[in-house]
């Protein structure tokens, strides 16, 4: 990758275009090893009610903090589980106090079955949190007008889903992602959710996404550490390919090896 391909959001340099969730790993050790393998730009966490006992036994939080202190990764708290703008705003404010960061992955769920965002509440929450100084990274659908509304609300990037959370189906609507890239050429687009394989992450990057955020595909792999490395390679390759420029697809075959100077063949045909 060219050295000039610096990745910034809200004028802050982000160390990697691969971002990872911290959930569902078999153990804290494996989680941190996966982070070391992927070197993610952001690591996501959340917050919930906890007893004093819960806090004392929270190994994952301790290990994430250690990782953040020893790496270039940043922490990205989320508002997972919120179903209204009001809830999401309240949780984001609590997250900023707990995690000491103004970055927030804004989630407002509108449908419990598909975990599809409630885009109306999402835009409302994004507007308020942006006004309060948050760097709002919204988990959204791939709807162009919704993404434009989120940008107008003050979001420094948009994070459209590739597919519903946890499905691993990849980019189920490539036309729409291409549309977003074409219509929002200067917008930072992070494909968030639904990525199941490195090839799907690479596809998103080849299509011009600026980054990908995923969790289940690494955490639930048979070998999360190896899979994290595979995703990192795929994201780098996809980004490099996007910059390199693709050949034009065509329907007719065209020989790669020059035909001129070929001996025997035409002679044999005539002599048959």
């Amino acid at each position: 990758m060219a050295d000039s391909d610096v990745f910034t959001i809200a004028r802050e340099e982000i160390s990697s275009r691969l971002w990872l969730g911290s959930s569902m790993y078999p153990s804290p050790d494996i989680m941190v090893s996966a982070f070391a393998s992927a070197q993610p730009g952001f690591v996501t966490m959340s917050l919930r009610r906890q007893t004093a006992g819960d806090l004392a036994n929270n190994d994952y939080h301790e290990r994430v903090n250690q990782w953040l202190g020893a790496s270039q990764s940043r922490l990205l708290p989320n508002t997972a589980g919120c179903q209204s703008a009001k809830e999401a705003i309240q949780l984001a404010i609590l997250a900023r106090e707990l995690f000491k960061t103004s970055w927030i992955k804004l989630e407002v769920i509108g449908d419990e079955y598909s975990l599809q965002p409630n885009v109306f509440e999402l835009v409302s929450a994004a507007r308020e949190l942006s006004a309060q100084g948050f760097y709002v990274l919204p988990y959204c659908t791939d709807d162009l007008v919704v993404c434009e509304s989120l940008l107008h609300a003050g979001c420094p990037a948009v994070m459209p889903w590739g597919a519903p959370i946890g499905t691993g189906k990849g980019i189920i609507n490539p036309y729409q992602l291409r549309t977003l890239r074409a219509r929002l050429p200067d917008t930072t687009i992070i494909v968030d959710a639904g990525i199941g394989r490195p090839s799907q992450a690479m596809q998103a990057m080849e299509m011009g996404a600026d980054g990908v955020l995923l969790n289940t595909a690494v955490a639930k792999a048979a070998n999360p550490v190896a899979m994290a490395g595979a995703f990192a390679a795929a994201v780098d390759a996809g980004r490099a390919a996007f910059h390199a420029g693709f050949m034009t697809e065509r329907d007719m075959a065209s020989p790669s090896t020059p035909v001129a100077g070929m001996p025997f063949w035409h002679t044999a045909m005539r002599g048959g």
Binding site: G21, L47, Q50, T51, D54, H61, E97, L98, N215
Partner: peptide, 29 residues
């Protein structure tokens, strides 16, 4: 439902009917 910063805990009386949540970090995607 609203953040109560730690420095305000000693001066904030608990009133009948209050709802208090104590939140810590968990893993998330």
């Amino acid at each position: 439902g609203e953040l109560l910063p730690a420095e305000q805990w000693p001066s904030t009386r608990v009133n009948n009917g209050d709802i208090i949540d104590v939140l810590g970090a968990i893993t998330g995607g």
